[in-house]
Amino acid sequence: MSYLLKPLQAGPLTLTNRLVMPPMATAKADPDGKVNQSILDYYAEKSEGGYLSLIIIEHSFIQLDGKASDLQLSVSDDSVVEGLNKLAEVIHRNGSKTVMQINHAGSNTTSEVTGSTPLAPSVVPHPRRKVLPDELTREDMATIIQAFQNAARRTKEAGFDGVEIHAAHGYLLHQFFSPLTNKRTDEYGGNVHNRIRLHLQVIEGIRAAVGDDFPILLRLGTSDYQEGGLTIDDSIVAAQEFEKAGVNILDISGGFCGYIVPGLSGQGFFAPLSEAIKKVVSIPVILTGGITEILAAEQLLAEDKADLIGVGRAVLNNSKWAEHAVKSLR
């Protein structure tokens, strides 16, 4: 039997195959971040037939000062739950499972988007932005933990199958993890364990809010691919801590490089990262990165590079990609 067509159990989550649609921002939400018909139609089309076992919804902001861009989805207050419930229902009707990705942008935004000065672990400009952020206080961090917790609760209330914490691509949690942006001298800075302290507090807060039977995924920016930045060695330590803390699936991606790395190409270019993480955890690992051919996806699973395969751009460009892929393997 095909590796891709094997079912997978991840904690309380049962998946029919190994194909995942990773989160990709659409900028289709209403100005206030609410779900509209355009978003419902988009995800209805992508999930048609249930060929993708799991659809991870694009990153959604947990509070206004963490909003990354205009027309981004919101999980920031209870008024959004009704629309999110419609979104979950559309995908479920088509036969796929779905989780929400929740995020705080930190300094990876602008005051034009948020209406306030961006916040970050330290007063260091974001590698992709010129603005100097304000440094987060303890009170700010407590508020952010609470916001993640409330966003996860809303995700569960809306009927999703799980929640994914965004800790990659240069957003707030990644900014804490990376030595490039975390210059703190308190217990949130310095060694790897200190730099993931906020992650662990967020996981603990979410688990308390959603209970043990609701899957938590974490998208981990595993390497910055930059001098002085985050390395796979840091992420190997972090991944083991996240598993201990109760994360059910690790979704492996890049750090400040984002989801594309200059000089890295080919099918599954993050495979060295996912393979290294997979060796040290017992929970499933998702691999994304330039995967466009079904046989390449099959090969990556066969070689134990990952447990699940995220196919983004190919599905974005062709909504029938997963259907053709699955049928070709049957």
Rank of each mutant, 00 (worst) to 15 (best):
R184G: 11
Q226P: 05
L15V: 07
T185W: 01
L132D: 10
P133W: 03
L172A: 08
V210A: 15
Q267E: 14
L119D: 07
A238V: 08
G11I: 00
L295Q: 15
V311I: 05
L173G: 06
E157G: 08
L300I: 02
E293H: 15
G229A: 09
S53H: 05
V113R: 00
G205L: 14
K320N: 13
F148G: 00
E164F: 06
P22N: 07
I196R: 09
D30C: 04
E45V: 10
S53E: 02
L273W: 11
T292Y: 07
R313L: 08
A302L: 13
A208K: 15
I206A: 13
G95S: 10
L264Q: 12
L40D: 13
K327C: 03
L40Y: 10
Q267K: 07
K34L: 06
N150C: 04
K156P: 00
Q9W: 01
G211H: 14
E227G: 01
M21T: 01
K34H: 15
K6N: 12
Y171S: 01
Y259S: 15
G33K: 06
V99D: 00
K305I: 11
G83N: 12
I102A: 08
V123M: 15
V20I: 14
Q267R: 00
V210E: 07
A25C: 12
T181A: 13
G229Y: 00
L198N: 04
T16P: 03
G106H: 02
P12W: 08
L84R: 10
R313T: 14
I249Y: 06
G33L: 04
L119K: 13
V311K: 05
E275C: 03
Y188V: 07
D251N: 09
N108S: 14
T288Q: 05
G11C: 14
V163S: 03
G254Y: 02
S53I: 10
I283P: 05
D78A: 15
G83P: 02
M1C: 06
L200N: 04
F160Q: 05
Y42L: 12
V81H: 08
A325Q: 01
S38F: 09
G66N: 03
F214K: 02
E164C: 09
D304S: 15
Y42V: 01
I216Y: 10
I55D: 06
A209D: 13
Q63E: 13
M100I: 11
I260G: 12
A29C: 10
D77S: 12
V99A: 15
S111P: 07
H104A: 05
E48Q: 15
E243F: 08
A209N: 05
S265P: 02
R195Y: 11
D30S: 13
L19T: 00
D78L: 11
W321L: 06
P118A: 03
I39P: 00
A152R: 03
I277L: 14
I144P: 01
L8K: 02
L180K: 04
L217R: 00
T143L: 15
L295F: 06
S116N: 04
L300W: 12
R154M: 03
N17P: 10
A271Y: 02
T231D: 04
Q149P: 00
V80I: 08
T292L: 03
Y225G: 02
P284K: 04
T288Y: 05
G258S: 10
A302P: 10
F214G: 03
P31K: 11
G95D: 10
G170L: 02
H59E: 15
V261S: 00
